[in-house]
Amino acid sequence: MVLLIAAIAFANRGGGSGSGSADGEAAKDGPRSEATAPSGVKPVDGKTGGIASGFAHSEQGAQSAAANFAVALGGDGMFRADSRHAIVDATHTPDAAPALKSELDKAYSADFLKNVGLQADGSAPKGLTFVSRTVPVGSKTTSYSNGDATVEVWCTGLVGLAGEGSTKPVSQTWFTVTEKLRWSNDDWKIVSSSQKQGPAPVNGDDRAASAEEISNAVGGYGGFTYAR
C-alpha cells in the first residue's frame, strides 16, 4: 500500500518524481477512454459514511467509484485518525482496509503532521484553514472484467494552510491515481492503489488569491459527487 494523494502531495512539494505503477500502463486490447458525457444512467443516490456508494456494476460504474474515492482519499479528513479510518473502511474491501489503516496511522504521525503545519490531532493552528481537496479531471479504465477493474483518475488538487502568516500557502498539484477495484458486497471497492505525479499543464497567468480569499472559498464552496 502507498500513501494516498494529500500526504504524497505534501511530500512531493519540493520536487522529484512520484511513484509509478505497472497498472498505469493501458492495456493494448483494453477499453479506451471516452469523453465524460451524460449517459442516461441514473447517478448513485446512496452514501456510506458520507461517501457516494451503490455504483453500477459496469465499466462506467467503476470509473465513477474511482473518481469518488479519489475525492474522499484526497480530502482533509485523511489527516484525522477517526475520519481517516471511516474513509478507508468506506472505500476499500474488508480484506484491504485493516492493513491500510495501520500503514496510514504510521504515515500520518505527529512528526509528519507537524511538518505540514498541523497540530498533533490533525487540526489547523488557530487562525489558519487547512486545505486538502482533490478534483478529478478525467478517468479511464485500463482493464475491466465482471468482478475486477483498474481505473486511472487524472486529478488536480489544492493543499496547504490558508491564513495570515501561513508558511505553507495553498498550492496546486497534478497527479494520476491508479485504483484496482473489486466488486464486493454489491459495490465497487478498492483493493490497492498507487499514485504518480502529473501530467501537469503549463501554469496560466491567474492572479494568486489572498489568504483570506482562499479561506472564504474553501468554506463557501462544497465538493462534488462524481458520476458519469
Rank of each mutant, 00 (worst) to 15 (best):
G74T: 11
A62P: 14
E59D: 06
V116F: 10
E103N: 10
E103P: 04
A37V: 05
F69G: 06
L73F: 11
A56M: 05
S17N: 00
A52H: 08
S21K: 07
Q63H: 06
M78V: 01
A70M: 00
F112E: 02
I87G: 04
Y108C: 04
L104R: 01
K114T: 03
A62S: 14
A96S: 12
A107K: 13
P94F: 10
E103G: 07
S33G: 14
R84C: 06
Q63T: 13
A27C: 15
K114W: 04
G77F: 12
K28T: 15
T36Y: 07
P125R: 03
H85V: 09
A72C: 07
G24Y: 04
S39N: 13
A86T: 15
A124D: 06
F112K: 03
D45Q: 15
G122W: 07
H57A: 11
L128Q: 14
V44P: 03
D111S: 14
D111H: 01
G75P: 09
A67E: 08
V44S: 06
L104K: 01
L73R: 15
G20I: 10
D76A: 09
P38R: 09
G40V: 13
K28H: 10
L100M: 08
T36I: 14
G14Q: 08
G49F: 00
G77R: 07
A81S: 13
A86Y: 10
S109M: 12
A27M: 15
A52V: 14
G40T: 13
R13V: 08
D76I: 00
S17V: 00
G18N: 00
V44Q: 04
S102K: 15
D89L: 09
N115P: 01
A96H: 03
K42S: 08
S53I: 02
D89F: 07
A90M: 00
G50I: 02
N68M: 02
K106N: 08
S17A: 00
K101S: 14
T48L: 05
K106G: 07
T36R: 13
S64Q: 04
A67G: 05
K42H: 05
L100E: 04
S109P: 13
Q60L: 15
P31M: 11
S53G: 04
T129H: 04
A96F: 02
A26L: 13
